[in-house]
Simulated scan of single mutants.
Amino acid sequence: MTTHVTVWNEFRHERENDTVAELYPDGIHAAIADALEDDFSVETATLDEPDHGLTEAVLERTDVLTWWGHAAHDEVEDEIVDRVHDRVLEGMGLLVMHSGHYSKIFKRLMGTTCSLKWREAAETERLWVVEPSHPIADGIDEYIEVPEAEMYGERFDIPQPDTLVFNSWFEGGEVFRSGCCYTRGSGRIFYFRPGHETYPVYHQPEIRRVLHNAVDWLDGSTESSTTFGNADPIEQIDTSDERSVH
């Protein structure tokens, strides 16, 4: 069965900043979708659509949701955050990119501030592969060099990742956990750091390969078959006790 991916983006910088518009004339979401559409069924959704493009029907058919946000995290309605959160727990994969670390949904799933250090100076970044056996690192050399990047530095206030796939070094000397895997409920989450809007990061072949690999891995999530609530006994017992307050 074909994996269905919904690529979500604020789609604000591309309409308000000439530099971003030149790099991503159809939106960052279009560049990400282009990296995926050869092998997956892809649709896009943006902030200013009704329900931010994330209706119940859209999320129900989504196997993996990718998330890019920066300037308008607070404009995402809590009802939609609840909706996405529930789908992740049910088994939908979630790929959070770059400044999406401050999104409501990522902070909700992490349970922390997700704060970090940052600097915008078009400096070199090297993403070192620290877990080469992980499927997300498939086809990637020892490191990916990004010629121009916004620096993110530790301390990154997130829970310890289940698996750390990439660790970044920046020209200015900082390091950062840039490829973090988590499981929440039945859903998988991958945080991937690169993607500042004024640099052509999503046109870089190695970055696009990681996005493709990440969607493949995230689709390994499974719809929950766990049963919760009141349960019949497995063995024969006396159920005549009537002191329950339920």
Results as ranks from 00 to 15, higher is better:
138 D>N: 13
138 D>A: 15
139 G>W: 03
139 G>P: 05
141 D>G: 15
142 E>K: 08
142 E>Q: 11
143 Y>A: 10
146 V>H: 03
146 V>S: 05
147 P>C: 09
150 E>R: 14
151 M>D: 00
153 G>T: 04
154 E>W: 00
155 R>T: 12
156 F>E: 02
157 D>I: 14
158 I>Y: 08
160 Q>I: 09
163 T>N: 07
164 L>N: 01
165 V>G: 05
166 F>I: 06
166 F>Y: 12
167 N>C: 04
168 S>R: 05
168 S>L: 09
169 W>T: 15
169 W>L: 13
170 F>E: 07
170 F>I: 09
171 E>H: 11
171 E>A: 15
173 G>F: 12
173 G>C: 14
173 G>Y: 12
174 E>H: 14
175 V>G: 10
175 V>Q: 12
176 F>I: 02
178 S>I: 02
178 S>K: 03
179 G>I: 02
181 C>M: 14
181 C>F: 05
181 C>K: 04
182 Y>W: 06
184 R>T: 12
184 R>C: 07
185 G>W: 08
186 S>D: 13
187 G>H: 06
187 G>Y: 03
188 R>T: 02
188 R>A: 11
188 R>S: 10
189 I>F: 10
192 F>C: 06
192 F>P: 03
192 F>L: 10
192 F>Y: 14
193 R>L: 07
194 P>T: 01
194 P>M: 04
196 H>D: 05
199 Y>M: 10
201 V>N: 12
202 Y>Q: 04
203 H>M: 01
203 H>W: 13
204 Q>T: 07
205 P>A: 12
207 I>C: 13
208 R>I: 12
209 R>Y: 05
210 V>C: 14
211 L>R: 11
211 L>M: 15
213 N>M: 09
213 N>H: 06
214 A>Q: 07
215 V>N: 09
217 W>M: 06
217 W>A: 06
217 W>R: 07
219 D>N: 15
219 D>F: 04
220 G>C: 08
221 S>A: 15
222 T>R: 15
224 S>M: 05
224 S>Q: 05
226 T>Y: 05
227 T>K: 04
228 F>K: 02
230 N>L: 10
231 A>H: 11
233 P>Q: 00
233 P>V: 01
233 P>M: 03
233 P>F: 02
236 Q>H: 06
